[in-house]
Amino acid sequence: MQKYPPQASSPLTSFENLRERIAGPDLVRTVAILDVLICHDGGLFMDWWHRTLPFHLAVLGFYGVMLFFVLSGFLIGTIMLDLLERGTSLKGWDIFLTRRWMRTLPAYYFWLFALLIPLAYFGPYGVTWDEARRVLPWFLTLTQNLGWPMVSNWYGVTWSLCVEEWFYIAFPALLLTLLACRLKPAAAFGTTLAAFFIVPLCWRLSLPTDVNWNEVTSKIVPCRFDSIAWGIAAAWLYRSSEAVTRLRKPLAIIGTLIILTTWLSDVLPVPLWTHHFQSMALFDVAGLGYALCMPAMMRLRTLPPLIGPAVRSISTHSYGLYLCHLPLVMMAGDLQARYGLGRRHAVIFTILTTIGGAIISWRLVERPCLKLRPGQFLP
């Protein structure tokens, strides 16, 4: 496989090395988690006052998760390209998966069991205790939406984690299979990447036209593999083309315009596309827009002192925020309905428990597990 230009191969600093983390990924994570929080918490807060969250804010959840997917694809794509370029052994790929799982799974299982406690002792928030017990095996094996819609509304935010975890397995598995068939590394990587664009589109096209887009098309694991693949493609181009590095600012402007156009498409005087085309292609249009922004993101090293620490803190706690925010706001709604908790107190309860939950998740689970991760040696 060709050597990549050194100026396009910026080293990635992980969460273990807080001092050398670059600002770009932190800013992206912050924007993504704020989008999700506005959509989920904001929507439920408005519902408590019998109002509706404006459409452009309600759809921010989609754009936030999409941004998480593309960023994740970019970062893991960079690592996989390193492994591929150096002809890393199977042990190196095992370490890659181990590092990914130690970053994501401990906090997931921590919250999975922690959220069962109030459900068992204080009654339902979203689902009953019996339903939670029935679907628990699916959640334990991360198969709750593997090839079908979510088996339960309980802990619904985990659908996106399933997409990522199965991508971590499926992409390297196909890539290593093609390498074992003696394809050249670049051809194997390109073929694998193409498959992760083609299969999701074909899967979505195979679904009935009247299915629930939000619950079926957008959440079944194989239907969303291309969302992460856009980040992989951006990483490949960023590393292999000096032109992409030079043109990062114009590309970011184009990408931002694509995102803004799709976000505001419902108020445009002329429809951009038919409803069916949108349901099939929105993932790839938004994925392209975000992918074009990734090279500029990697060149953003610092932020102004007034916002830099806040962005880094939100980014650091973004995974814990994502895992705990929706169950906690649903719990607050249940406390209102069954125990008479006031609406303002429910908002305060949601904010405090969400922030506290994210801090606990980071300090007691995520950070200790990061310190235990094996180093990614590249023999």
Rank of each mutant, 00 (worst) to 15 (best):
Y4H: 05
P6L: 09
S14E: 13
N17M: 01
R19T: 12
E20K: 00
I22V: 01
A23F: 03
L27A: 00
R29H: 02
D35N: 12
L37N: 01
I38F: 10
I38T: 00
H40T: 02
D41F: 00
G42Q: 08
D47G: 13
W49K: 09
R51Q: 11
T52R: 13
L53Q: 01
H56W: 15
L57I: 03
V59M: 08
L60T: 04
L60Y: 00
F69A: 01
V70N: 11
S72R: 07
F74A: 11
L75R: 12
G77L: 08
G87T: 08
L90P: 03
K91C: 13
K91T: 13
K91H: 08
I95L: 09
F96Y: 07
L97T: 13
T98Y: 00
W101I: 00
M102R: 06
M102Y: 03
P106I: 13
F110L: 02
W111Q: 05
L112F: 09
L116S: 14
I117D: 07
P118V: 04
L119K: 10
F122C: 12
P124C: 08
T128M: 02
W129T: 14
T141G: 04
T143Q: 06
G147N: 14
V151E: 06
S152K: 05
V163E: 01
W166F: 00
Y168L: 04
A173V: 08
T177P: 07
T177M: 00
L178C: 06
L179N: 06
A180H: 14
K184E: 15
P185N: 07
A186R: 15
A187R: 06
T192C: 09
T192K: 15
L193T: 06
A194V: 11
F196W: 12
I198N: 13
V199W: 13
L201M: 01
R204T: 04
S206K: 13
P208I: 04
P208E: 11
T209M: 15
V211R: 13
V216L: 09
S218V: 10
K219V: 09
F225Q: 06
I228M: 08
A229D: 00
W230L: 11
G231T: 07
L237I: 13
Y238E: 10
E242I: 14
V244G: 02
R246N: 06
R246L: 10
L251C: 07
I253G: 04
I253N: 11
I254A: 09
L257E: 08
I259F: 05
L260S: 05
T261V: 03
L264A: 15
P269E: 07
V270T: 03
L272D: 11
L272F: 03
H275A: 14
S279P: 12
M280R: 09
F283W: 01
F283M: 02
G287A: 07
L288P: 01
M294G: 14
M297D: 12
I307T: 15
H317Q: 11
H317L: 15
Y322C: 12
L326C: 00
G333Q: 11
D334E: 14
Q336A: 10
Y339R: 03
L341K: 03
A346N: 05
A346V: 07
T350Y: 10
T350P: 11
I351V: 15
L352H: 06
T353R: 09
I355Q: 08
I355K: 06
G357N: 04
I359N: 12
I360V: 11
R363Q: 14
L364G: 14
E366Q: 03
L370N: 00
K371I: 04
G375A: 15
G375T: 13
P379I: 15
